[in-house]
Amino acid sequence: MNRTLPLLAALAVLLSSCEKEITVDLPETEPKLVVEGTIEVGGPPIVILTRTQSYFAPTDLNSIAAIFVKGAVVVVSDGITTDTLDQVCSSQIPDSLIDEAAAATGLDPDLLASADICVYTDLGNQLIGVEGRTYSLYVAADDKVCTSVTSIPHAVALDSTWFRLAQDEPDDDTLGFIWATLSDPDTMGNAYRWYAKRINDGSDGEDKDDSFIAPFFSVFEDRYVNGLTFDFSYNRGDDPYAEEDEDDAENGYFKVGDTVVVRFASIGLKEYQFYNSWYNNVASQGDLFSNPANARSNVDGGLGVWAGYSYAYDTVVCQP
């Protein structure tokens, strides 16, 4: 729930009188492995493996597609079952399943369709996420090894969810946010992540959202709310891959008539710390109002995150 960054960004806007594009000469460093791995209750582990590249490396599609690592050895174990994950590449998937694959991996469907992108998962369903279990990860690729451990916490359901019109737009009677009441369990160390998906039809006759979208700073922990029952709200997150044709005025809002599925995730504290620092990193991008900081990875030998998720779902029909 970081609410300070917009201010700092705005300060820069208020004070800056002019800016220009410059060329920056950055040192070359050895690429590192980046893990984006999740295991959720009832699902197989999914690991996306990429490499870092120089900040000003080429930005064309081929250059971006080349960061995905193929042929890695990825092993996940719950302490009893140890499974070497299968490599699944988008070129093997029929076009009709691309959107589903994108929703499952969080990758850009256009990218999956236009380049051969490989991820690692368990096609044989030998290893399925269970609440309370701990999962270790081993990755070997590019002559490097990374390891990590995560647990799937027990899900915490929201007491209730509802839609409320935005208070900052009094003239408008259609736009608002999703609210929820949460009773945080009486033990310290709970952390959460919020997702929402609009399942009513959009103008194209399909669901408005293809997948669950986590808004910016969608994670929080219970340091200040331990054991409390309280209300909170989230705005609507942006689909990072959306074409820019959305009505700007509705950006960030849910609208009367939307049917919204809220997916309320429980995650571990280390994973929370990764996501929170990752959001800070994405938000700051080198500005002077914050000390530059890397995302706090829970992966040894690499970057990124290995995170266990458990979910509780709610559906809200947006009415004024």
Partner: peptide, 11 residues
């Protein structure tokens, strides 16, 4: 302090 490398997480 400037970023030297870039990578992607959740797009």
């Amino acid at each position: 302090t400037l970023p030297v490398n870039r990578y992607w997480i959740e797009g």
